[in-house]
Design a protein around this nucleic acid. Structure first.
Lengths: 349, 349
DNA sequence: TGGCTATCTGAAAGCGCTTTCAAAAACCGC
DNA sequence: GCGGTTTTTGAAAGCGCTTTCAGATAGCCA
């Protein structure tokens, strides 16, 4: 019988397991595990042997077995309202940055601004055994927190602040109010809002509330015909602005829920010969890539998605590893002034 | 002693396992498993009892244990070059659509147009035990396919066609050539290209090659000073076009690697008083949301990302389930004509 | 009622890794 | 060279689920 090396006898199709490595290195699986997990207390020569054997065999530990044994899945879930929204994509990728550094994986899911769907997606992730969960906002299905609690994993909410749950975000009402105050300081008195869907969306709702309160604080009010709710997107922005013009005297300034909406509104304005910022000041939300390149460049509320993501990732990792964390992290939004805002024309207010 | 219901006595902190359900329903764990996995051959009354017990306890099967036992992780990985690119986001979300229908999860990772990083990310996913893998393009790290093969899971490439590997995509060279031919049919003879980074990017490379060949077929050539490579984004497009103008007589038409790049080029053109499409025709790639809303609306090559994602998802699921599949699925791109293209000014060609 | 199938069911054996525990080996000072 | 430590090490017991296999039940017909 020929004396073939082990690796040729290795039956193909079956990937090597710890026992194979142990066998080849002449140790037990316990030692293999110790070496591969970097734990101390293995003599240098054995450690070497194991390393080489693992290398030769192309050994890759079975994740499921490891998860079962350690009770750690090494993955964190995130459910966002809309995976095509720039802000959420940025958060996902920055959360992932941090998770990767701790050897965790991110599993993302889409809830489509629907609480039932959000519950379904989160449950799905929970069943998978995720070790932590990131959500957006403070409004969720009534059963969601109970399920999360039962699973015993850490959860963090993002993009808004919460009284009850750990969170990383900012005060949506206050930042939108800041935009409204800025417009009022410029002299505007008829200010409109075009927001995305507000149902089950505390961020959108809070922003409008914040604006209404800021107006009220200066004796103005948000006219119902200037308070428009549309579905997201450029088309939505166009429709929304058109709708706003249909009701009485036009506003001299508008605050939009996203930069896309603002873009749409500006297109509609141009189509109607309304000049921006001459006749109409426009403020967006998010500071998307294209905002500085619109004509005129868009004044917008920059949401620090990347920082939010990093903080949320760090928060989850810390709690998973049992380290202490602060319950609430505020990462304030910032008003970026560009050319789409200006004082109203004389006598227009 | 008080006669408390079971669920109050349940020690908190330990989530219920199959044995608890079995115990409560008065059956074995084997039967619990059979009921929960919908397999036939369990008498109605026992089935009922198990269902109720699981419900009462809020039982959720441990994913790791299940994965270990079935050798199925119920997750598919996807590595894309840039998770912030609209086309890739759409593909991810449409792949996920299909995976969810088969109860699979998608785990997405970002490779940042770097083969080493792509290898690292893919390896990371492979180690996690994914059941299938989606990649973008046909150029990868030399070791990648070997690792995938060793893991024994199905893989599918997207966005381009491949001679060697299963794929869902289209002929990038041919579709870009179509755009070039369209421009030449309009009468253009000086045609330029602004593409994203071409290194390790077969799609970008193929598009430029396709254009060059189409030009050559009609006795024209792609002048080196009209062949610009930039990093993606609106800013990149601006810079790219500026750079192109610096070298000799300007082109009368350009084809851009993405709509963002086209947007940037149009901004730069406007800034210099070059009218589109009067002095310059512009074609983009992807048909992004904003393309129809630019001024003028952008002619672009629409890539059917959603269909590609669905086909890729179906392909992977089919192979995971051992069903036969076609190796190559072509989902052709489409030239969408809008107002950013027109015949060149008389005498300009 | 008895004999023979066709259904159901539970015990038990994994899946591949980690981790405990006790034994073995190595080390140390005298 | 010896008793007492201190390291290293491997055997074995899980982790929680699926699945096989054989025994228990139920169903059916004569």
């Amino acid at each position: 019988m020929l004396d073939l090396p082990d690796d040729i006898l290795e039956p193909p199709g079956r990937s090597p397991v710890a026992r194979d490595v142990a066998h080849r290195a002449g140790v037990s699986t316990a030692t293999v595990s110790r070496v591969l997990n970097g734990s101390a207390g293995v003599r240098a020569d054995k450690r070497e042997a194991v390393m080489r054997a693992a290398q030769d065999l192309g050994f890759v530990a079975n994740g499921a077995a490891r998860a079962l044994s350690t009770r750690r899945f090494m993955a964190v879930g995130a459910v966002v309202p809309n995976i095509e929204n720039e802000a959420f994509v940025r958060v996902l990728s920055s959360v992932q940055d941090r998770l990767r550094q701790a050897d965790y994986t991110l599993i993302a899911a889409n809830a489509g601004y629907d609480l039932e769907d959000e519950l379904r997606e989160a449950t799905f992730l929970l069943e998978r055994g995720i070790d932590g969960l990131m959500l957006v906002g403070d409004i969720h299905h009534p059963d969601l927190h109970a399920r999360i609690a039962r699973s015993g994993i850490p959860m963090v909410q993002t993009f808004s602040l919460s009284r009850e749950h750990p969170c990383v975000g900012f005060d949506n009402a206050a930042s939108a109010a800041r935009a409204a105050n800025y417009l009022m300081d410029l002299g505007h008195r008829r200010i409109g809002v075009i927001s995305g869907l507000r149902k089950d969306n505390d961020r959108g709702g809070a922003r409008v509330t914040g604006i209404a309160q800021a107006l009220a604080a200066r004796g103005l009010r948000l006219a119902p015909e200037h308070d428009i709710e549309i579905s997201y997107g450029i088309g939505g922005g166009r429709d929304g602005f058109r709708q706003m013009l249909a009701g009485g005297p036009p506003p001299t300034a508008i605050i939009c829920g996203t930069d896309q909406i603002a873009f749409g509104a500006m297109i509609e304005a141009r189509a109607r010969g309304i000049s921006v910022p001459g006749d109409l000041s426009v403020i967006g939300h998010n500071d998307s890539d294209f905002a500085p390149f619109l004509d005129p460049p868009l004044t917008t509320i920059r949401i620090h998605s990347v920082e939010i993501g990093h903080a949320a990732g760090d928060h989850l990792i810390a709690r998973i590893q049992g380290r202490p964390v602060v319950r609430l992290t505020e990462i304030d939004a910032e008003l970026i002034l560009r050319a789409s805002t200006a004082p109203p024309r004389r006598g227009a207010g």
